[in-house]
Amino acid sequence: MNTTKHSTKLNRREILFSLGAGSMALVTLTMLPGLARADKTAADAEIKKILGGKTAQDGRVTLDVPQIAENGNTVQLEVAVDSPMTEKDYVKAVHVFADGNPVPNVASFHFTPASGKAVAATRMRLAKTQNVIALAEMSDGSIYSTQAAVKVTIGGCGG
C-alpha cells in the first residue's frame, strides 16, 4: 500500500483502464469543477479548527490513495508521516478530510512515541471525485499537510 507498491502495480491493463475510464464517464465529472468543490467550505472550516491560527507546512506527510478509485464505497487510504517518533519528537495525530463529501471528516489517527512509525491505513467512502487532505500535528505544535485528488468512477456494473 505504499507509494512504490502502488506505482509498480499500475500495469499496462490498469493504464488502459484509466485511459478508458478517462475517455468515458470521468470526462463528465472533470468538466464540472464547481460540483466537485460544492462542500469545500465545510472542509475548510474543519481544517481551520485543526490549524487554530497556525499555517500548515508542506512536506513530511505522504498520502497514498488511488488516482482512480474503482468504487467510491471503498477507497484505500494510507497516511505516513516522516518523524523519528521519539518522546521528544513524534507525530501526535493525523486528521483526514475529503472536501467533496457531505461530511468532510473522514478520520483522525492518534499516535504515540510507542507507535514506532506514524503510518496508518483504513478504507473510506468518497461520494464523488474530490480532494483528500491530511494534516499532521507534531509534538512541537507544528502542522504539516498534503492533499491528493481521487477520481471516483460510478463503478460496479449490475445490481
Binding site: M1, H6, K9, L10, N11, R13, E14, F17, P66, I68, A69, E70, T74, Q76
Partner: peptide, 11 residues
Amino acid sequence: YTYAAGETRDM
C-alpha cells in the same frame, strides 16, 4: 481477478 484494479486485488 485479472480485471480488477490493483487496490481491489490487494484487498
